[in-house]
Amino acid sequence: MKLNFGFLIYGAAFLTAAMFTACSDDDDDQVLPGYTITTVSFDKVPESMIAVDEYGSNYYSSYDGEQVKSGYMARIGETDTYVQFPVNYLWQEWVPGNPWMYEFYNGGFVVSDFTNMTGADYKNQCSVYNQSGGHNDANFIVANGYSVANGSSVSYDKCAKIYLTDKTGYQVVASDPDQPVSGEAHYGTFNSVWVCNTTYSYLAMKDGNGIAHALKDDNGWFKVVFVA
């Protein structure tokens, strides 16, 4: 998976306008005056942040070891802006006492390098349906989450969220449960992103499973939506 970011710098500030397009070769990117293009890849992610198995066990509180919480952060070029790929910190409605916790099932990102192209259930949720892994290197990011419609309003609490922030990143505010995470927002333009299905989602859409019908059976389709 690859993400390209463009930044127009005004002193210490960044001007933003969000747009997602198909990726092109880096040499073909048109760079406007004042902009710089930075490619964010995942080839240098610390081993401790990569999924230990195809389920991503180390991204859950039940893991018998060090849980990954704040997610991977990458610096954007030589700027003071970082891109953060966290796991959501949310109120656990199904856990006794309803604590606030990091849990990948509540949405977020896992860094992975698994390419199991046959496992068709959630235990293989961190495998990409691609023999070589990510776009330019073996590592990639798995996004998980969903939105909930309630009448005319939509909640994105459990969607996977990418933060542009400073080097501190978005951190837990333990004293304020109404604002569980807080950070300094920075701004930039998403120029392009490479997207591929996980094996679990691909096989579920292709063949169906105990929860979903195969898309071909219902003339279905799959849509990826980015919300700024």
Rank of each mutant, 00 (worst) to 15 (best):
P46G: 04
D29N: 14
Q92E: 13
V95Y: 14
T36A: 08
E93Q: 10
E103A: 10
V95T: 14
M49Q: 15
W94M: 11
Y35W: 10
Q84L: 01
D27R: 10
S62F: 09
M73V: 08
Y72Q: 03
S41H: 11
V52S: 08
G97W: 02
W91N: 12
V45S: 03
S41D: 15
E54V: 13
D28T: 10
E103H: 11
T38W: 05
P46L: 03
I76Y: 01
Y82W: 15
P46S: 07
Y63W: 12
E66G: 00
R75H: 08
S24D: 15
G65D: 07
T36W: 00
T38I: 12
A74D: 05
G71V: 03
D53G: 09
F42A: 02
Y89C: 09
N88V: 07
N98L: 09
Q92C: 13
A51C: 15
P99E: 07
A74V: 06
I37N: 14
Y35I: 05
W94G: 01
P86N: 10
G56D: 05
Y72H: 09
E103W: 02
D25M: 14
P99M: 07
G34R: 15
D25I: 12
T79Q: 07
F85K: 06
W94D: 14
F42Q: 04
P96M: 08
I76F: 04
